[in-house]
Each structure stands twice: as structure tokens, then as C-alpha cells.
Design a protein around this nucleic acid. Structure first.
Lengths: 189, 189
DNA sequence: CTTAAACGTTGACATAAGTCAAGAAATTTA
DNA sequence: TAAATTTCTTGACTTATGTCAACGTTTAAG
């Protein structure tokens, strides 16, 4: 159950095995169905997830019912509705499983205790924040002025799994183009 | 010289005045001319800035010489080319003063010493990261699917100074629309 | 395994926004 | 203060991408 989690932390930290075991103890197993919503738009997000198997997605619905996909997370990644997890305000976005998934869940108060207790883990959290920031920056400014073809090429280079494993419809809603346009662009590659 | 800096820290932390004085001691005064480039695209950013007076901008130039404005910072804000400051890799973006500016500059190694020494300051830095992340998120996902008019309205609501104090040309390059379109949209408001 | 639903592809058409250019207005510099 | 530069605005035209619809294919659920 904790195998992938432990491997992940062993790879990116120099935490002792006993510490990793201790940390893992605060993550409990949760299985989720295909399309299950783990955080609703109106809810405050209190959990930090590690994906053992499956895929997750952050998305929003606007007033006309149009979905926008914000973020996709795959196996052996952390995932949460971060702004809500940070600020403890309603998420304003949905956190969803895209497949039947096996997740490890840590409660917010445990998570903050852990990062206080383990500077190495705090460093991991800061890295997640910094990486989130840098990725957002690249995404915004990479896409600024890109046409549909350039967006798709950029995504193939930088986040290939999104185009390989995610449906056209969701990938299009991530790229900010219509499914028709994505389909047409792919045909030209 | 340190008046605004001290007020700023007094407002958002509970640091003692002697600590704030100590911290301020690591920030030195720098004056910069209108349009002066403080960090070049190819440089690694080693400084953290506090703006006493003036305005700063982060922007990029693509291969066709087209400018994209990424971020505007005003008086009493911190500013730096953050991804480069974090990773110590070439910035890939320009940090520029838009007006004759008075800045307080802290060297990276001093900055990291300070946040190590003062958990309150570390909290300020983490807040800057978290806020940067959240703002980027809002910007991306707010703009996703917006047309030019909606982008302008959003910016008036959320970052009014950009439309009030920044030239049309630069604001347009921030919004990802052409100056002509911004001009036409403004006329309709 | 079968049926129903959702998704992907493609064509025809509509439209928002870009480009280019020219003149007016504003700002900077000498 | 005057000249020079840059920026703003507006019109005419172009173009990329969206919308809608139809059809075939894939996927999911009973």
C-alpha cells in the first residue's frame, strides 16, 4: 500500500526509512470510482492526496455549464485543490478522479504538523509550491500569443501525458481550444 | 530610506522593530532610470527587490521581437524574476523599471539567510509564493474562455492599476490582445 | 453481449480579433 | 519650447478558430 509512496519520498529526500514510515502512517488509503468528485466547488479542501494508481483532474464549470480543465495528475504525484487547501476557502473548482483510483489521503492538520516536524518534507512542499508557480508561469506565458497548433506542440513537448492519456474533449478544455480545433490540429501533425 | 519597507513589514508580520532594522540592513538602496533593465533575459537573477517608488515590469521578447508583459509591480511591493531567483538559471525574461525608481535590493544569499533566521520572514516569502501561485492560477483560468471585453473587465476588477497606470501597449501585451483591440474594447465600456 | 450514451471527426458557415495603415494626440528629449 | 518620437484611435480587410450539425466510432453500463 505504501510502496510507491515510500519510493517517491526516498527518491526526492534523504529522510530515514523510519521517518518515512512515520509519515506514511498519516496517509490513509482511499479508493475512488471513475468520475468520482472528491472536492466539490463549494467545499473547502482539507485533504492532500498521493496517487497510487489512477488519474485526477482539477476543473471548473462556468455559468453556462462549460468545463475548463485546469490540471491533470497521474500516478506517483501529489494532488490537491491547492488554493483552497492553502486558504481554507471554498475551492471554486472540482477535484475529480478520472479512473478508478487508489489514493493515499492526508488530513490538512496532519500535513502541516508533518511539514513542521520534518524540514525535509517542508522542502518537498515548498518545491511543490515553487514548481506549481513556475509551471503556471510557463503555461500562461508559453501560451500567450500561441495559436492552436503551437499550443498542441508545446503540450506534446512539455506534458505529453495530457495528449496521450486524456480524452480529446478534456485536453481541449485544458488547452483553451474547441474539441473540433484540437481534432483538426492533430490531423495536421 | 527604509520607512516604507519598515511599515510594510510591521503591517504583515509581528517582527520586533530591532529585527526589522536588522533585516533592513541587508537591503541596500538602488536608483534606476526609466526603462532601465535590471535583469537581462540571459542573466541569472540574484536580487530580491522592494519598490520604494516607481514601477517594475517582467516581460519577454519572442523571436519576432514581440513583447509579452508578464507581471507589473508597484510601490511597496516585492519584485524579482522569481523562477530564476529560485532555480538560479538564466531568467528567460527581462526585469525592467518603467519609471525612475527607488529600490531596496537584497542579495539572494542574504535573503535566504534572513528567511532561515526569521521564521516570520520565511512566512512572508511563502505567502509571496502561494500568492504568486494563486494569482497565476486565477489569471490563467479566469482568462480561459474569456473574450477581450471579459478580460478587460476582469482586470479592472482585480488589478485596476494595470489599466490605470500602465500604457495601453503594455497592458495589451499583458492581456494577450492587440493594442487596437484594447482600444476598441475600452471605447465600449 | 447488447444497447445506449458519449466521443471524435469533418464540413459549412459565422464571428471575434488580428493586421496594416494613417492621422491625431501625447509624451519625451534636446 | 520645439522637434522628434512614440502611442492611441479608428477604418478596411483578413484570418484563425468557434459553432452547429451529421455521421461513424468507441466506450460504458445493464
Amino acid at each position: 500500500m505504501y510502496q510507491k509512496f515510500k519510493e517517491y519520498l526516498q527518491n526526492i529526500t534523504s529522510l530515514k526509512e523510519t521517518d518515512i514510515d512515520y509519515i506514511a502512517g498519516f496517509f490513509s488509503l482511499k479508493t475512488a470510482k471513475r468520475n468520482e468528485i472528491l472536492v466539490d466547488c463549494a467545499q473547502v479542501c482539507t485533504d492532500f492526496y498521493f496517487i497510487n494508481t489512477g488519474m485526477m483532474r482539477i476543473y471548473t464549470l462556468n455559468s453556462e455549464g462549460i468545463e475548463t480543465s485546469r490540471f491533470f495528475a497521474f500516478e506517483e504525484m501529489f494532488c490537491t485543490a491547492l488554493p483552497s487547501f492553502i486558504d481554507q476557502k471554498p475551492a471554486g473548482e472540482y477535484l475529480q478522479c478520472l479512473e478508478k483510483s487508489e489514493l493515499l489521503v492526508c488530513k490538512r492538520q496532519d500535513f502541516y504538523k508533518l511539514i513542521k516536524q520534518f524540514p525535509e518534507l517542508d522542502r518537498v512542499y515548498r518545491k511543490i509550491l515553487e514548481l506549481g508557480f513556475i509551471t503556471s508561469q510557463k503555461r500562461i506565458y508559453g501560451f500567450q500569443g500561441f495559436n492552436a497548433l503551437e499550443k498542441v506542440k508545446w503540450t506534446i513537448e512539455n506534458q505529453p501525458r495530457i495528449l496521450l492519456r486524456i480524452s480529446n474533449k478534456m485536453a481541449a478544455s485544458y488547452l483553451g481550444i474547441s474539441p473540433s480545433t484540437l481534432s483538426r490540429v492533430k490531423a495536421k501533425l
